[in-house]
Design a protein around this nucleic acid. Structure first.
Length: 883
RNA sequence: GGGCGGUUAGCUCAGCGGGAGAGCACCUGCCUUACAAGCAGGGGGUCACUGGUUCAAAUCCAGUACUGCCCACCA
């Protein structure tokens, strides 16, 4: 067995076994209690990234833990067609070929999209397996597979029949690059330095009124100028007619309270076709919208001389014209928040358009209640507020997209009478006029429409399947907080509407993954971390452990190399602990749990600790404290089992045929076995490898084929032993103080001169009497004497340390050796003092620091501190020598 | 403009009413027959600031300052 853990050699083997044996297959007929999660389906737009890594690692930890705890676990895997996101990816490819999707045509485009899906959809599965994800692959779903498409259609029709889906001409967000409507959520607002222009509109019959705008090109679509009804400055102009510059349109000056009299000039241009506020104002005031931009954001014929021009070119030209006509009064910098397309970053344009909407309020009300009442629990709790905030101010959801990749809207329009037919089955004729010529709506649905159904559509809805009956509502959803509105909220609404039941009981929101410096990872910044390289470098288990150890509720996860290093070191530590244990376990029979009669105090101590840690881990998992669970195991494995127990039990293990040896062997086997099992959800590969490599205890039933289906360790009250724990605390304290006293004075510590321990209590005395040899072994020295008074010894120098229950006296060699050591140390101080002088001079010379030099100086300072420290330490040793 | 977080050792983070902690980095000594990705020891923090509550505050309350994120139609 190799001296170091090599993940690359170990991981593939177990992935194969897990797959072959279908270990993660759920069984609706099982008599175990069900536990179900649906994966947040990754988009088929590309490879998984570190964020997916975190999300799926946490899910897998819960899945494995629950499976080992006796649940029938169903973790449904799958992927999302990601309508608009996939469009953007494919269109980027097309662009390289000099094509647009319109040139390619709908059919050809769909072929490409399906090919894309085949490629990336498949890779997603591979990548999840690579991570060790214990999904039920036999139940893998895709948002556009036939079953889910049927669910989408059923939902659309039912919502339509219930009057919750309607079609309307309304002002929506339009992405001119994607050439589709997008929902409010798909618009990302970014602050930018822009300009605010003040423009003068002539009034008919003389005079003028000036208005401010950040988008001058919309002037061409103005339908009115509005002022506040109470604004005295403008009272006189209300009712008069203004002339729109450049196009000469005559528009009214109106009064409406939506105008803020304190902003700009107090008068505002009204462009009902291209601004949300103005759209509503226009409806209120009965103004006709004038559409001046088309679907590519080029100016329409309504824009007169600017017709056919790009919106931003038009802006500049128009400004030139206004300037030359003396109508541009002012131009100043203005901070503005620009809406951009979430997927392609193009500046979106508010546009009037005929779209399908979901009337959301009736769906939102029960969804709000489900969380308020606690039927659905959010972890961490703080996200409830965010959810409430959004739900209480929710607006109708624009669900139609002028795209091709997605679920086509099941609506047909009669070519002769124009009636709309929404139907579960494709209609062949118009039910109203009998006409045979019907045209299906060309649009597809927002990608989130289908993901909103994911919790039940993946289980077979609208069919009443065994899965649906058994696993719905699902138990837990693990997802990122960035899709709380996009996805979580919509699943709650859809679940309640169509299943009449919440979609999940708990929602755990994992953090965002950030880079080593804690900064948000983005392609723009160029600080992306390749997830697969990460696993390559550190091993999947170490990456998983790092994710878990950094997952404290409500905080993001920074991929700090230090943490990853620590996890990798831990994997190696476990590897070597088992490498040490294996020959002993192979040397003779052992039973688990070990027979009690010959157990040493150390045995009883580690068994007791093992039980307590199992309980801590189980409780931590129950409350989704992955950080606490892994910290408890880490500490136990490294700092209790390895640092103390393995060292203490070596003498007993060396004598396998004695009762003590057998007891130690049994203890070791028992504890290692349980450690591996409790660690398995976090580090599945290494634990499987090691667990499989161990001989099984005598007389045990056949071992499960995989540790993944072994039982998760629980507390064993009969193993808990407070007396042994207390005794070991005393013992460890003595060893530590002995090491402490000797540290740095190795030359002066006599191995053959016993130390004295003066116990303060009878309890301590008894413990120490029992463990004199253990102390000797762990400190590589002679056994200490347990004394009532520590007496001075001729020719030896005592140094003393006090513990909670003893005074520990260590004797150093006396006389000549001390003098020699003193001389050596004095010389060392001299040398360091010289070095220190140099440092001080350097620091003094710095005077004014250029910023660039600051770092170098900081280094010198650190060196300075170190030197000072070292001198102080040596002085301390000298003092002790003098004592 | 609203809302939610964060500010603890050089770095990444736990702790959230009585002892200031972990991993990494750093320093010292060790290749001790599981592990040098290791062992043993060590240094390092007015727990952002101010005020309040309390016998007691990193921890509770109020405010301040930075900082991150979400939401929002102010032209």
């Amino acid at each position: 067995m190799e001296r170091a853990f090599d993940p690359a050699r170990v991981e593939p083997r177990w992935r194969a076994l897990w797959e072959e044996r279908s270990l993660y297959r759920a069984d609706p007929a099982s008599d175990k209690p069900p536990f179900c999660m649906v994966i947040p389906p990754p988009n088929i737009t590309g490879r998984l990234h570190v964020g997916h890594g975190l999300n799926n690692t946490l899910q897998d930890m819960v899945a494995r833990w629950k499976r080992m705890s006796g649940y029938d676990v169903l973790w449904v895997p799958g992927s999302d067609h990601a309508s608009i996101a996939t469009h953007v990816m494919i269109e980027r490819e097309l662009e390289k070929e000099g094509l647009t999707r319109q040139q390619l045509g709908r059919e050809k485009f769909m072929e490409r999209a399906w090919a894309w899906k085949e490629k990336f959809g498949g890779e997603i599965g591979e990548q999840l397996r690579r991570l060790g994800a214990s999904c039920d692959w036999s139940r893998e779903r895709f948002t556009m597979d036939p079953g889910l498409s049927a669910a989408v259609r059923e939902v659309f029709v039912r919502l339509y029949e219930d009057g919750l889906i309607y079609r309307d001409r309304y002002l929506i967000n339009w992405c001119p690059r994607c050439r589709t409507a997008v929902s409010d959520l798909e618009v990302v607002h970014k602050e930018m330095q822009g300009k605010l222009w003040t423009v003068r509109y002539p009034l008919e019959g003389g005079g003028w009124i000036s208005v401010a705008t950040t988008r001058p090109e919309t002037i061409l679509g103005d339908a009115a100028v509005a002022v506040h009804p109470e604004d005295d400055r403008h009272r006189a102009v209300v009712g008069r007619t203004a002339i729109v510059p450049a196009v000469g349109r005559r528009i009214p000056v109106v009064a409406d309270p939506f105008v803020d009299p304190n902003f700009g000039t107090g008068a505002v241009k009204v462009t009902p076709a291209h601004d949300p506020n103005d759209f509503l104002a226009g409806r209120r005031l009965g103004l006709d919208p004038i559409v001046v931009m088309d679907e590519s954001a080029r100016m329409t014929s309504e824009a007169g001389p600017y017709s056919g021009m790009d919106r931003f070119v038009c802006r500049e030209r128009l400004l030139d014209q206004l300037r030359s006509e003396g109508l541009l009064l002012e131009e100043k910098d203005h901070l503005l928040s620009l809406g951009r397309c979430q997927r392609c970053d193009t500046i979106v344009e508010p546009m009037i358009s005929l779209q399908w909407f979901v009337k959301i309020e009736p769906l939102a009300r029960p969804a709000l209640e489900a969380v308020e009442s606690g039927r659905i629990r959010f972890v961490p709790d703080q996200w409830r507020k965010t959810y409430y905030e959004w739900m209480r101010n929710i607006k109708d959801w624009c669900i139609s997209r002028q795209l091709w990749w997605g679920h086509r809207i099941p609506a047909w329009y009669c070519d002769s009478c124009g009636v709309t037919i929404v139907s579960r089955r494709d209609p062949d004729k118009c039910g109203t006029c009998g006409c045979l010529s019907l045209t299906q709506d060309p649009d597809v649905l927002d990608t989130w429409f289908s993901s909103g159904l994911w919790a039940f559509s993946t289980l077979g809805w609208p069919e009443s399947t065994a899965e649906l009956r058994r696993y719905y509502p699902t138990t837990l959803l693990v997802t990122g907080y960035d899709i709380i509105f996009f996805w979580v909220a919509r699943m709650v609404m859809m679940g309640l509407k169509f299943m009449d039941e919440i979609p999940f009981k708990d929602v755990y929101f994992n953090g965002l993954v950030r880079d080593a410096k804690g900064e948000k990872i983005s392609k723009m910044k160029g600080n992306t971390v390749d997830f697969f390289e990460l696993m390559e470098t550190y091993g999947t288990d170490a990456v998983r452990l790092t994710y878990a150890s950094l997952s404290s509720p409500g905080s993001d996860v920074a991929l700090a190399p230090g943490r990853l290093d620590g996890s990798r070191a831990f994997a190696n530590k476990i590897w070597n602990a088992v490498r040490f244990a294996r020959p002993h376990l192979e040397a003779g029979a052992w039973s688990s749990p070990p027979r009690r009669e010959h157990l040493s105090e150390a045995d009883r101590w580690i068994l007791s600790r093992c039980s307590r840690v199992a309980q801590v881990v189980d409780e931590a998992m129950e409350s989704y404290r992955f950080d606490e669970a892994t910290a408890a195991i880490y500490r136990f494995a490294w700092h209790e089992l390895c640092d103390w127990y393995l060292e203490m039990s070596k003498p007993a293990l060396a004598a396998p045929n004695t009762p003590a040896g057998e007891a130690a062997r049994g203890t070791l086997g028992h504890v290692i076995d349980r450690l591996l099992r409790m660690l398995h959800p976090f580090m599945p590969f290494i634990t499987e490898e090691l667990w499989q490599s161990l001989p099984r205890p005598a007389g045990s039933a056949d071992r499960p084929v995989s540790i993944a289906i072994a039982l998760f360790p629980l507390r064993e009250p009969e193993m808990e032993d407070a007396a042994a724990e207390r005794a070991l605390e005393i013992l460890m304290e003595q060893v530590t103080v002995r090491r402490n006293l000797a540290a740095g004075k190795e030359a002066l510590v006599a191995r053959d001169v016993p130390a004295h321990i003066r116990p303060f209590t009878e309890e301590a005395r008894q413990v120490l009497e029992r463990h004199r040899d253990t102390i000797a072994g762990l400190t590589r020295s002679a056994a200490p004497q347990i004394v009532q008074f520590s007496t001075a010894r001729e020719g030896w120098v005592p140094i003393r340390g006090v513990t909670s229950c003893t005074e520990f006296t260590l004797f150093l060699t006396g006389g000549a050796e001390i003098e020699a050591e003193r001389a050596r140390l004095n010389k060392e101080i001299e040398r360091l003092a010289k070095e220190l002088t140099v440092h001080e001079a350097k620091l003094a010379n710095e005077g004014f620091l250029s910023r660039a030099k600051a770092e170098a100086v900081e280094k010198v300072r650190a060196g300075h501190r170190d030197l000072t420290d070292r001198i102080a330490r040596i002085r301390k040793t000298l003092e002790q020598l003098g004592a």
